[in-house]
């Protein structure tokens, strides 16, 4: 947990430059897939359809939540994420929908 909290305060993590986005707020921000393993960031927005947003919301993946990327499976497999003290996996295509800011950590 300490690592997570530190992670939100540090903000020097190098992230790919923000991409040009559509009209939806948060589209221009980097997503969980842009984090490196071990990096934490704060969720800024969850973009995408309502089914996806509702399921992620139920798991506490909401703006303001801190997410730490713990690892990833090879060949484009799911990401391992720590959210609100629990470990979960999310497919990359779904992780793409979670836009983050203030990345930091290891």
């Amino acid at each position: 947990m300490d690592a997570l909290i530190d992670g939100t305060q540090a903000s020097g993590g190098a992230l790919p430059s923000p991409r040009a986005g559509g009209g939806e707020p948060g589209r221009e921000l980097p997503s969980l897939t842009d984090l490196r393993d071990g990096q934490s960031a704060r969720v800024a927005a969850v973009v995408g359809g309502s089914g996806l947003r509702r399921r992620l919301a139920a798991l506490g993946v909401l703006p303001g939540a801190v997410v730490c990327r713990r690892g990833s499976m090879p060949a484009g497999g799911p990401l391992l994420l720590e959210v609100r003290g629990a470990l979960m996996a999310l497919r990359r295509r779904d992780a793409e929908a979670v836009r983050v800011e203030g990345a930091g950590g290891r």
């Binding site: 359809g49 399921r55 798991l59």
Partner: peptide, 10 residues
Amino acid sequence: REEAPLVMEL
């Protein structure tokens, strides 16, 4: 495919 991702909690 369904839009809602399956929950893969560990």
